[in-house]
Nucleic acid binder design. Structure first.
Length: 788
RNA sequence: GGCCGGGUGGCGGAAUUGGUAUACGCGUUCGACUUAAAAUCGAAUGGAGUAAUCCAUACGGGUUCAAGUCCCGUCCCGGCUACCA
């Protein structure tokens, strides 16, 4: 071989790895008994789009791959599986447009993704491939649903829901971005519907409490905390006529300043309390507010509202205060009603000023004023005192509220996991028994949803009818199936556990396998900071409570990688025509090794980076030099081999991989190669180079190791090798560098000797003529500083 | 508006614990090889200055023998969030 031919080398090794199933994880009795530590790594599995891999996938997968190979070379028991998140709208929209079934389009796309992933040389255990739309997989998604249903954590509720008129489906809160559908960008509206929910709020406290201990990026942890949004406060009842309005407040200490109440337009009591002459205006206001899209309600921060004509009694002051309706109070949070304290709340103040409502100061210089019997009390004590007082008088209670709502999971779509429920004649839901799973997705001729808001599943008339045991009557009855499917996030809420025993036909996951492999040690992704990453935590805690999992957090370490943008710094998109196709990069001759190494070198993995069409050439040159050193006589050494650079490089690359500094690890390999080019490379130098290079450029490194006749076991370093005879000491005067002196290695900490040597330096001496006030020789620093 | 990041050469970025600022790569320039080009190899490369030296890590202060790193203030950029009572 005369020159570096990446495509040839890569084809060769990919074939070898496939034939030998090189990356197959050990099966259980063996894995458990060999005494090695386990390591379970995964990327967030991709949605296999028709466009194939993009450079973002490559970055994501390569991070996992570098770590997989690193830990494998360190002889751990490594599990690195792969899968596809295949349910979702693109396949369904494609089916509506072309008539090609989602099943068939998905298969095509997976085949393409697999082929492309293999061309990256990923160290994947292909025997564990999973696919969420495979009946053998979604059978267990349905089983998971039934477990939640049995415990009352899957329930139906009629409520206003985000509805996308274009996609004809309900959307969850986090699928609405700026008032628009996350998929198609259509403006969403609110619609009253009966929907399925998972009761994630039952776990709100634990999800919040356990966040802190996670080895996850602070950014993600903060986002999760904010999303859960725990507020401690009180619920207080305000009497109006024979009714009572419950409000939620985090500031019960300011109750003497509550000069009016505000109800959300959706609040059920509005209709009941409104006075006759206010009725028309209130009805008009509520109707308009509810019609308005949330985005309009948000954009227009100008306060609007209308007086109901009714009054309620402030339990603290005994005063009658007016009840208003305004859309700045949200129906979904707290009780959908507030006590307004314009003196201490910016929004209430704005409202009061606009509608000329009274404002009463209750806190002055941290002391309570105008607060009845509490006047004069320090504000810091007021909170607890008033809470006790409210409770004692029966007006209110301590209460914790969350911003997080229950997880809406029903989707009026065809291409999703069918919800395993059927309805009896009275419309009551019944679970499909576990032994009748999976509820298969029926074939239909037309994938369009019907205009009643039901998915295309409703068109499969035979499928709709099912005989199910009615657990109340004890009889098998003919029922009608649920036509909603599950949110795709449900399918991805348990897939990490399926990897432990992907072929288990009797369980979602095997108890022994899960106990050994899970939780996932390192999980890598660049998306889903709250949604997916919160849902897997929720399911983990739920299944732990049911005794199915021996741990309460699914992911120990989360690496959140940045995006790769186009060379112009903008997001890559087909419409802008600035997309870099990773397969093009490989095929034009760079090969997968260069692509992988470049994406690791591009910058810190957790930062966004712009693709640089030129810079990738530098990485290619680097790999080319590695090849040359090994396969031509360019690098054969004749010089003395102290091993200093070699051992320094082993240390640097190893510690950099532990702290996930992939870019500087590559940089130090480049320095190493540059040095070997200068001084020549020994067999040992080349062996170490190939071993350290293997996580990044596995094909080339394998080729090198084969030539060298060496294994790939991760090398260790010995500090003794990089102890130098002579050490250069920086000489500063008043903190400025004025000279350098060399001393023998054993004198590095000998301050007197160094001082003497430094003063002998002519340039330094010049600065010391005026006399020395102080000499500082910090330990562990090759530096001396004279203060003059 | 709130919270969290960040601001270092022409560019991407290094600097792990307060101790040689600018590693590595790109680009640029020069040289070698070549009929020539590409590729490859070598050298130089923050700014000013003949030099000693001075000035440079967004800006202004501070702490320290010593600050890109710590503290205070200001400006700018990015992300998330957005009337959550």
């Amino acid at each position: 071989m005369e020159r570096y031919e990446p495509l040839k080398i890569e084809e060769k090794w990919q074939k070898i790895w496939a034939e030998n199933e090189t990356f197959r994880a050990l099966d259980l009795p063996t894995a458990k008994s060999n005494g090695k530590a386990k390591m379970f790594l995964a990327e967030m599995f991709p949605y296999p789009s028709g466009a194939g891999l993009h450079v973002g996938h490559v970055r994501n997968f390569t991070i996992v791959d570098v770590l997989t190979r690193f830990y494998t070379q360190q002889e751990m028991n490594v599990l690195r599986p792969f899968g596809y998140d295949t349910f979702g709208l693109p396949a369904e929209n494609y089916a509506i447009k072309t008539g090609i079934s989602p099943q068939s389009a998905t298969k095509t796309n997976i085949d393409n993704f697999r082929k492309q992933a293999k061309r990256l040389g990923l160290a994947i255990d292909w025997s564990r491939e999973i696919n969420t739309s495979d009946p053998e997989y979604y059978r267990w998604t349905q089983w998971c649903f039934l477990q939640l249903y049995k415990k009352g954590l899957a329930y139906r509720k009629e409520s206003y829901q985000w509805w996308c008129p274009k996609d004809q489906t309900v959307l969850a809160n986090e699928q609405v971005e700026g008032g628009k559908c996350w998929r198609c960008g259509e403006q969403v509206e609110k619609k009253l519907m009966k929907q399925w929910f998972f009761k994630i709020t039952d776990y709100a406290d634990e999800l919040l409490e356990d966040v802190d201990a996670l080895n996850w990026p602070e950014k993600i942890k903060t986002m999760q905390k904010n999303w859960i949004g725990r507020s401690e406060g009180a619920e207080i009842a305000f009497e109006t006529g024979d009714k009572s309005i419950l409000v939620f407040t985090t500031r019960p200490d300011t109750i003497y300043g509550a000069t009016f109440l505000v109800l959300a337009p959706e609040h059920p009591l509005v209709k009941q309390i409104v006075s006759d002459n206010a009725k028309a205006a209130v009805e008009k206001y509520c109707a308009e507010a509810m019609k308005k899209s949330e985005i309009e309600r948000q954009e227009n921060k100008e306060k609007t509202g209308v007086f109901t004509g009714a009054y309620a009694k402030n339990p603290a002051t005994g005063e009658e205060i007016p009840i208003w309706v305004a859309d700045y109070v949200l129906s979904g949070y707290g009780t959908g009603a507030i006590m307004a304290v314009p003196s201490d709340d910016e929004r209430d103040r704005e409202f009061a000023e606009k509608f000329d409502l009274p404002i009463i100061e209750v806190i002055k210089d941290n002391q309570m004023v105008n607060s009845g019997e509490f006047t004069g009390l320090p504000n810091s004590e007021m909170r607890e005192r008033i809470l006790d007082w409210l409770k004692e008088k029966g007006y209110g209670e301590r209460k914790v509220t969350y911003k997080m709502r229950d997880w809406l999971i029903s989707r009026q779509r065809y291409w999703g996991c069918p919800i395993p429920i059927a309805y009896d004649k009275d419309g009551e839901p019944h679970p499909i028994p576990e032994d009748q799973l999976p509820v298969l997705i029926p074939e239909v001729a037309d994938y369009k949803p019907d205009n009643t808001g039901r998915s295309a599943l409703a068109k499969a008339e035979d499928w709709l009818k099912v005989k199910v045991l009615n657990e109340k009557t004890g009889k098998i009855e003919e029922m009608t199936r649920e036509t909603d499917t599950l949110d795709g996030y449900a399918c991805s809420s348990w897939y990490l556990w399926r990897y432990a025993s992907p072929h288990d036909n009797d369980h979602a996951w095997d108890a022994d396998d899960i106990a050994y492999w899970a939780p996932t040690d390192i999980y890598v992704g660049g998306d889903h900071a709250v949604a997916h990453l919160l849902y897997i935590r929720f399911w983990c805690k739920f299944f732990a409570d049911q005794g199915y999992l021996p741990f309460r957090e699914p992911v120990k370490t989360l690496l959140y990688n940045g995006y790769i943008n186009a060379p112009d710094g903008k997001k890559m998109s087909k419409s802008k025509g600035n997309v870099i196709d990773p397969l093009d990069v490989i095929n034009q001759g760079y090969g997968a090794d260069t692509l992988r190494t470049y994406e690791m070198f591009i910058g810190p993995y957790d930062q966004d980076a712009a693709w640089d069409t030129k810079a990738i050439g530098g990485v290619y040159r680097f790999l080319n030099r590695c090849w040359s050193l090994t396969f031509t006589d360019a690098g054969v050494t004749t010089g003395t081999d102290t091993g200093a650079i070699r051992h320094k490089t082993i240390k640097k690359v190893t510690t950099d991989l532990h702290r996930r500094c992939f870019n500087t690890a590559v940089a130090s390999l480049m320095e190493y190669v540059n040095e070997l080019y200068k001084v020549g490379a020994s067999h040992e130098d080349l062996t170490v180079l190939a071993k350290l290079l293997k996580p990044f450029a596995p094909h080339l490194a394998s080729e090198m190791l084969e030539k060298l006749g060496e294994d790939d076991v991760w090398p260790t370093w010995d500090e003794q090798h990089f102890a130098e005879d002579e050490v250069e000491i920086m000489v500063q005067v008043n903190g400025k560098l004025r000279g350098k002196v060399s001393v023998s290695a054993e004198s590095v900490e000998d301050a007197d000797l160094i001082e003497k040597a430094a003063r002998a330096d002519a340039n330094v001496a010049k600065y010391l003529e005026g006399g020395i006030k102080k000499v500082i020789k910090p330990a562990k620093a090759k530096l001396i500083n004279f203060v003059v």
